[in-house]
Computed example of a mutant assay.
Amino acid sequence: MKISSRGEYALRALIVLGQSYPHLYAISELSQKTLVTENYLEKILLQIKGLGYVESKRGHQGGYQLALHPRDIVVGDVIRKLEGPLAPMGCASVTAYEPCELEGSCMLKPLWVLIREVIAFVLEQTTLEDLITGNLKKPGSFHSISGDVALT
Rank of each mutant, 00 (worst) to 15 (best):
E124L: 03
G7D: 05
L114A: 13
R6Q: 11
H69L: 08
K2V: 12
I73G: 00
E83S: 07
Y64W: 15
L136A: 15
G104L: 05
P99N: 07
M1E: 07
R71F: 03
E103Y: 02
S4D: 08
A120T: 02
S31A: 13
P85N: 10
I3N: 01
H143W: 08
Q65T: 10
D148M: 04
H143V: 10
L51N: 09
S56M: 06
T37A: 10
L136M: 13
T133I: 06
G90K: 03
V75N: 01
E83A: 05
V54A: 12
E124H: 08
I132Q: 12
K43M: 06
E101F: 09
G140H: 14
S144K: 09
P139W: 11
L41S: 06
K137R: 15
V54D: 04
G134Q: 12
V54R: 02
H69D: 15
K2L: 08
D72N: 11
L102Q: 14
S105K: 08
E29Q: 14
R71V: 07
A96V: 09
L11V: 15
L46P: 05
V122I: 09
R80E: 06
R116P: 05
K81Y: 03
Q32F: 03
C106R: 06
I48H: 03
L136V: 14
R71L: 01
K109Q: 15
P85M: 06
E124P: 00
S105E: 08
F142D: 09
P110E: 12
F121E: 11
Q47N: 11
R6F: 06
G59C: 08
K57R: 13
R12W: 07
I132W: 07
I132P: 00
G7A: 06
W112S: 10
H23T: 13
P22R: 08
G18M: 02
S105D: 12
S144R: 10
L131E: 14
K33D: 09
N39A: 10
L51E: 15
A150W: 13
S31H: 10
N39F: 02
G84M: 01
Y40L: 08
D77T: 07
P85W: 09
A92R: 00
G76E: 03
L46D: 08
V54P: 01
L128D: 01
S93A: 14
Q47I: 03
I79M: 05
A10P: 05
L123P: 04
M89A: 12
E38V: 10
S5L: 13
L86T: 01
D72I: 02
A87L: 05
E124T: 05
C106A: 07
E8A: 07
Y9I: 07
I132T: 11
A67E: 05
V36F: 03
S28P: 01
Q32S: 14
L24K: 11
I115W: 02
T34H: 04
K137V: 10
L14I: 10
S141P: 04
T127L: 02
A150K: 12
V122S: 02
S141M: 13
L46G: 14
G147C: 06
P85I: 00
V36A: 04
D130H: 13
G7C: 02
A26L: 07
I3V: 12
P110G: 09
G84S: 05
Y25N: 09
Q65W: 12
T37C: 07
L114K: 12
G59I: 13
G59D: 07
M1A: 11
A120E: 04
L86E: 05
G104E: 13
T34K: 09
V113M: 04
G59R: 15
H23M: 11
V113P: 02
